[in-house]
Nucleic acid binder design. Structure first.
Lengths: 344, 344
DNA sequence: TTGAAAGCGGTACCAG
DNA sequence: CTGGTACCGCTTTCAA
């Protein structure tokens, strides 16, 4: 059977509430009794029931990270875990230091509506605060639900500022601009952009950055629709190669797509970067080891996690965190976007 | 304020227990009252508190998937989410159909001891059953804790059979054998194996399969230690290229490592597969699009998820699932392991 | 300081 | 069929 607190209390020969206080280091308990209780707890291998604890205390001790996206989708999730890892780690660590627990609520965008899940979280006792990481289109229903929520929220990389939710954003637009500019500086004359999945903020921001750079250079934008996976990158690149004025450089929505694109290019007997330069996005672990190695943009996951933790803890402490934090991404130039010297 | 069941009952003008029954479709409630209760619930935007529900019912309704591994590690997690996705999906779906909820407990092997986390899960009200997916060395402490657990357990790809825990395994050994045999059949004379991380069952099984195939062909095994990430694959390959009798084919522990290896080979001015053939493991999404595309082994994640769900539900129904299920992997032959015809 | 008792939000048994 | 009531395991007043 389950060992309960009252078992411990009985064993230690003290009252229930004393046992509770002793274990929680709250309120007054004499050293003597505390020791007895602690020993009893160990002897009985007692472990508190978090459910009961939370239900009784109403002291929400967990912070929910609400992630929606096509988590688990073979097509495009390759970089997902990779992206989340450092963020989870940093966020979880900082939050734990403040005495909270990180609860990760994954929500696949293809099963059920995010708003429903949020509704559930909203009512559940568990959440002191919610971190939103929504990688799907924001519809009215979702926004509606968000407005109902009364615990502090912080959003990561999704445009929720208008709801007054503090935002932690990586500067995707700026990174897209930098990446495109890098291609422009490299002397490429026809630079295309292979877009990410439609209707995603992450996609839009890349497009905007790309367009800004192109406009500033008075160059004509050229785009294909795409996705975050290599399959789509492959076919999108083939489309790009079929047009009359082939691009000689492509800024891809992410590394996976770029890898697909690279294959398409080489299948046509063309070379990266001699015929077509490539820049990806994300710096997934293999990118550095491709041949040619892939130029890309590295997002500051760890700093984002830390910033998120700070913002959430600020909220919880009753302070107002900055409305928006824009954390720069790093452009990583590798072989795929640097013209090779002509060997004589 | 929180809307509770008693608010709903009051609003509907019925007793608390009636309201509970109406909402749960359990026990007898007249259609009339049920409608009233349902309407009241909707009107008040009532949502049940899962904590209280579980605490009161003691009817464990969630199945915990306990995963330990270096989840979140930038170095080697690329394939992790990709691997888990389909498994989660299949498992979650089948379990949901039976009225359970899947609770995913991620446990990084580098933070805290798995046994501690298990101890917590053990006592928590939430778990009707536990699925173990342990990708770290099994030490005494962990085995000890496992033995204490009294809810049904099923293990995925970890050697826990001796504890009497039903196992769902993908046939890694068999796949390694097939992969090596494929290289042997291809006429490669010096076939090496680049190992996975030390002390992991997954690593051992690959080694065993490799050795079996080599022994059957009376060839001399040749191994380097490695890991699951491209960095290590890269340096391990360089080591392999430094020995006198260079291999002309390498079976790598996974695709990421193979990609690192491929880079090392090409940096030496050698070609894949003409000078050295490569076979990976996992079939991560980009593998098909590499140049040359990577031969690899695809694990049956979806079937594993389904089999796991079946086993767990069997346990829960009081039946005894098979002690061990071995699900075959699929060898996928691509360019990296097929000698190209000499063009004349 | 300590412990008895009143919940937290539900579920389930039992008498009506 | 229905509603009162005793818990689930723990926290938290509030007397003692």
């Amino acid at each position: 059977m389950r060992v309960t607190l009252s078992d411990v209390a009985k064993q230690a020969g003290v009252g229930l509430s004393t046992a509770s206080r002793a274990l929680n280091r709250s309120g007054y308990v004499s050293e003597q009794l505390r020791k007895r209780v602690l020993q009893a707890a160990i002897a009985l291998d007692y472990y508190p029931d978090m459910l009961a604890q939370q239900l009784a205390s109403d002291r929400r001790r967990t912070i929910t990270l609400f992630e929606v996206g096509n988590y688990g989708n073979v097509q495009s999730s390759q970089d997902l875990e990779w992206f989340f890892g450092p963020l989870h780690k940093a966020l979880g660590r900082d939050i734990a230091e403040a005495g909270y627990e990180l609860n990760i609520a994954l929500q696949r965008s293809d099963e059920g509506h995010p708003a429903q899940v949020l509704a559930r979280i909203r009512r559940s006792h568990g959440s002191a605060a919610i971190v939103l990481f929504i990688r799907s289109p924001l519809d009215a229903r979702l926004v509606d639900e968000l407005a109902q929520i009364d615990v502090p929220m912080v959003s990561i990389n999704c445009p929720l500022e208008r709801l007054g939710i503090p935002a932690i954003n990586s500067d995707i637009r700026g990174a897209a601009l930098k990446a495109t500019q890098h291609l422009i500086d490299g002397g490429y004359s026809r630079i295309a952009h292979m877009q990410g999945p439609a209707h995603l903020p992450a996609t839009e921001l890349r497009i905007i950055g790309y367009e800004e750079a192109m406009a500033a250079a008075k160059m004509t934008p050229m785009m294909v629709e795409g996705d975050f996976d290599p399959d789509t990158g492959y076919s999108a690149m083939h489309k790009l190669l079929d047009v009359e004025q082939k691009p000689n450089a492509v800024f891809c929505a992410n590394d996976s797509a770029a890898i697909g694109a690279s294959r398409a290019i080489q299948e046509r007997g063309l070379s990266v970067p001699d015929d077509i330069a490539l820049v990806g996005f994300d710096d997934i672990p293999v990118s550095r080891f491709l041949f040619p190695s892939l130029s890309t943009v590295r997002q500051p996951q760890q700093r984002m996690g830390e910033a998120t933790a700070r913002a959430i803890l600020d909220c919880l402490a009753g302070q107002t965190p900055p409305k928006e934090l824009l954390i720069p991404c790093e452009l990583i130039v590798r072989e795929s976007s640097v013209p090779r010297p002509i060997l004589s």
